[in-house]
């Protein structure tokens, strides 16, 4: 299980960074999404994957004696997913607005010469 996830994580990071290097705005957006998913899987992996052992304590015992799945990485990922969702939605709206305004998908066209500032 770990090895597949590690390969998947590497692929997500590599593809994300590659997409960020492209000039297209849509690819920039995809890159951001892939990278944040890669980071989530990284946290999941580093929390040591334990299958089928929820961190729920038995009524009879006071402390854990057996190994159990670490709940903290899952809480972290949940938070990171929510934050990532918010930021990606903002990014989609922003890039859509920019596309309507400059009528181009090319990030190199984002350099309108110095105009008057507010």
């Amino acid at each position: 299980m770990e090895i597949q996830l590690i390969i998947l994580m590497g692929l997500l990071y590599a593809a994300g960074i590659y997409m960020l290097f492209r000039r297209s705005m849509v690819k920039l957006l995809l890159g951001i999404m892939l990278l944040s998913n890669g980071a989530n899987i990284l946290i999941f992996l580093l929390g040591r994957i334990t299958k089928g052992r929820p961190p729920v304590i038995d009524e009879a015992s006071k402390v854990f004696t057996d190994i159990y799945a670490d709940p903290i990485p899952q809480a972290l990922i949940l938070t990171a997913i929510v934050i990532g969702f918010g930021i990606q939605s903002f990014a989609i709206v922003l890039l859509k607005r920019v596309y309507v305004l400059i009528n181009s998908d090319d990030l190199d066209n984002l350099n309108t010469p110095e105009d008057e500032d507010i």
Binding site: L20, M25, L28, I32, L35, S36, A39, L42, I43, L46, P73, L76, A80, I87, F90, A91, L94, L95, R97, V98, L101, I102, L107, L110, N111, T112
Partner: peptide, 24 residues
């Protein structure tokens, strides 16, 4: 909006690096 695209892209990248660091 043009400034915001650059600002947004690099700040999200920074956050991802920060999050990766926290994970490790």
């Amino acid at each position: 909006l043009e400034g915001a695209v650059k600002y947004m892209a690099l700040n999200i990248l920074a956050s991802t690096f920060f999050l990766t660091g926290i994970g490790i």
